[in-house]
């Protein structure tokens, strides 16, 4: 490592701090209702299943948390011929 490398090397500790703050804020807010994702998925699916038949194998759930916004994506593949329940 050169002398210049020593002074210019990007510091990783601030990244660590930011990642931890984000994660811990999320985890603390979650204590007690750990399976929020399971609950949300089940309730959303139940509402949709009232109207159309869905294949549970084709349900994708994705999450991305950011400093300002978090997104929960629930991706439900619709059957080719939509069987609308009456």
């Amino acid at each position: 490592m050169s002398i210049f490398g020593f002074f210019t090397r990007t510091r990783t500790a601030p990244v660590a701090r930011e990642r931890l703050q984000l994660l811990l804020a999320h985890e603390r807010s979650l204590s007690g209702k750990s399976d929020l994702a399971v609950i949300l998925r089940e309730e959303i699916l139940a509402v949709i299943a009232k109207h159309i038949t869905i294949d549970r194998e084709k349900v994708k759930v994705k999450l991305d948390r950011d400093g300002t916004i978090s997104t929960l994506e629930i991706d439900i593949e619709m059957p080719e011929v939509v069987a609308v329940k009456t």
Partner: peptide, 15 residues
Amino acid sequence: LIMGAERRVVFDLVN
């Protein structure tokens, strides 16, 4: 956390 995927965890081994 070590893999950098902490913000993307929805379901886990127990689920």
